[in-house]
């Protein structure tokens, strides 16, 4: 294992975050806070509680989820796409590193940023609402696993993309709608039965539900099912990245 390479990649990626701290941290925290203020105030004044939880507090896990999913994808896809775009990926391909080191370096850095952002949003939310976390370790576990999974997904996206448009198309046209329809701002039990069933086809429902359970001990689906879904997504992404490096798909001719 080339630990120096992991450290070099991780350090460089984290330095990029610090260079662009406004874009990397302030922007997602601000936009999530705006969601919180607007949705919390506008809808919260009409829906006081969902499943015994104040609406303002209820949407916090969903908002954190929204932020970490989009940030994980954005950070890791950019991290691998930009070297492809500029041509500097030649160095990565000619270095004595396997896919394990590359993934730990790039995905680890992207996931670290997401976890930091998630925790900052959580702290910010604590300023607006009274927030209790029933299972902090489970909350952290979900936070880390989802950050890692979506960072892996972003990495795959960055390898697949051959233009800036493709890089943004999946987050905007797939992830964002799935997140908004995945119970971020509501409980799917509030939907008509047919839509409840349809919602269960949305993988984000399981992620938000499991994460929310860690806060309030209530969820749309069993927490074990949520955990299994996260692990399944993680394994699929890991296998896809392994396959990319084994075959050289879109990176090695």
């Amino acid at each position: 294992m080339n630990f120096h390479a992991i450290r070099a990649i991780y350090r460089t990626e984290m330095a990029r975050m610090m260079r662009t701290v406004v874009q990397s941290i302030v922007a997602p925290v601000l936009s999530t806070s705006l969601y919180f203020v607007v949705f919390g105030s506008a809808i919260g004044s009409r829906i006081t509680e969902i499943d015994g939880v104040g609406y303002g507090a209820f949407i916090v896990p969903g908002l954190i989820m929204l932020a970490i999913m989009t940030e994980s994808i954005s950070n890791s896809s950019f991290a691998i796409y930009f070297p492809k775009f500029t041509g500097t990926i030649f160095e990565l391909l000619s270095a004595p590193v396997s896919f394990v080191e590359v993934v730990i370096g790039y995905v680890g850095a992207a996931a670290s940023k997401s976890v930091v952002i998630g925790l900052i949003i959580l702290a910010t939310a604590g300023l607006f609402v009274d927030l209790q976390i029933a299972h902090p370790f489970v909350m952290l576990l979900f936070l880390v696993l989802i950050s890692v999974s979506f960072s892996l997904f972003g990495f795959i996206l960055g390898v697949w993309a051959d233009g800036w448009e493709k890089l943004t198309i999946v987050p905007v046209l797939v992830i964002m709608p799935l997140t908004f329809l995945g119970g971020t701002f509501y409980s799917i039990s509030m939907l008509p039965p047919a839509w409840q069933t349809i919602s269960l086809l949305n993988p984000v429902v399981y992620l938000v539900s499991g994460f929310r359970w860690a806060f309030f001990e209530n969820s749309d689906v069993a927490v074990a099912v949520s955990f299994a879904m996260v692990m399944a997504f993680l394994l699929v992404c890991l296998f896809a990245v392994y396959w990319i490096f084994k075959t050289g798909y879109k990176i090695r001719s």
């Binding site: 120096h4 390479a5 070099a8 990649i9 330095a15 160095e91 990565l92 270095a95 004595p96």
Partner: peptide, 14 residues
């Protein structure tokens, strides 16, 4: 300086 340090690490050197 930073890119040289990165390259050194990437190729497995302290």
């Amino acid at each position: 300086y930073d890119v040289c340090r990165f390259s050194r690490g990437l190729f497995g050197k302290r």
